[in-house]
Simulated scan of single mutants.
Amino acid sequence: MGRVQFADYAKVYVKGGHGGAGAVHFRREKYVPHGGPDGGDGGAGGDVILRGNEQLNTLLDLRYRKYVNAKDGNRGESSKRKGKDGEDEILEAPLGCVVYDADTKERLGEITDHEQEIVVAEGGKGGLGNWHFRSSTNQTPRHAQDGEEGEQRAIEIELKLIADVGLVGFPNAGKSTLLSAISGAKPKIDSYPFTTLQPNLGVVTMPDYRTFVMADIPGIIEEAHEGRGLGIQFLRHIERNNVLLFMVSSQQDIEYEYEALLDELRAYRSDLLDKPRILAITKMDLQENFELDKEKKLDLDIPVVEISSATNYHIDELKEIIWEQIQAVEKSKEDTESSG
């Protein structure tokens, strides 16, 4: 089996560095034979940090880093000198990642910007040196604090692809063929189910230097939200798409398949249906005279476009409709931000 080229999930055991111990030391100089305590504090342990990197688009590297430990802090030194802090350990991740505590399922944060950082395991505090413990009744304290243990936990990192439009459909609906036809992406294409085993991204270029990003999500099957098939592994990618392009083959029961896809998204996360939707009826080149029978026509309150990726039938029209929907979403976001 070939090496996996994409990963959207990783589980990593992380541990912050141990804090350095405080020092027990007394001032000793030639003419000060009975100097007081001057043991310095221990250095703090390093943190384990998840950092956004816009150049990455997969969690593949983190899949192979099962255990990650930050460096320990150094012991305190004489003359009240603090020990050196332990070095942080940086885990670089693509934008669109959400990180959880694997045991409690607490959401620790989300990476949305380049170089954004989330501390997933804090280093322990350094111990206090013995000079902190001097008092009128104890001028020569002979003890100092140990450093604290660093935080340790298992974390789960999920990548949700960021794209302007996501393709939603059952296997063999023509999603990969469309992505290949209108972008530079080269997904694997064949005539059997589950050809697409991982999401594919493509940049679609239009006249006047307009571009948008399209994501081909692996085919969903009925009851995918319950764990059947491959679709459940990738439903989360739909969450980050501004527009959903539903694709149903002209050779199938169009209304039934469209409603079945809506049911799967509704069962997974009902708010996904609040996103703008477009329905593309694919493989029209297999229809006589490129027309659907009257009984196959749909009366929906969303744009419906009959297309053929093989012949470019209505492809330009589809791209313009997608562009209009994307712009409407962007304007809505701008209006919300300005009013807030």
Rank of each mutant, 00 (worst) to 15 (best):
I238L: 14
L244R: 05
T140I: 06
V4H: 03
A7F: 01
G150N: 02
P37Y: 04
K66C: 09
F170C: 05
I307T: 09
E77V: 00
K11Y: 01
E288W: 03
E89R: 12
K82A: 01
F212L: 11
V68P: 03
Q5P: 01
Q198T: 14
G109E: 06
G73D: 03
N138A: 11
K186R: 13
L292V: 08
N130M: 11
F194Y: 11
T177Y: 01
S78T: 02
G129Y: 08
E259I: 11
I302S: 03
I302E: 06
E106Q: 12
E239I: 15
S308V: 06
P141F: 07
G19R: 04
K319T: 10
K82E: 04
Y100P: 10
D103G: 06
P193S: 12
G46E: 05
K297A: 02
L178P: 02
E156K: 05
D293W: 00
Y313S: 02
I232M: 10
N200G: 01
R269I: 00
G129T: 10
E151Y: 05
E87P: 00
N57M: 13
N312I: 02
G36K: 09
P303S: 03
Q325D: 02
K319Y: 02
L128R: 15
C97Q: 10
A267F: 04
M1S: 13
G126V: 01
G76K: 12
G184L: 07
G126I: 01
V4I: 13
S309Q: 05
Q325A: 14
M1P: 01
E334M: 09
L272K: 06
L286K: 15
Y209F: 09
G52R: 09
D146G: 07
A93R: 02
L298S: 05
G43A: 11
A7Y: 00
S308D: 04
D190F: 04
K188L: 13
D285I: 11
E77M: 12
D38M: 07
A173E: 07
K275P: 03
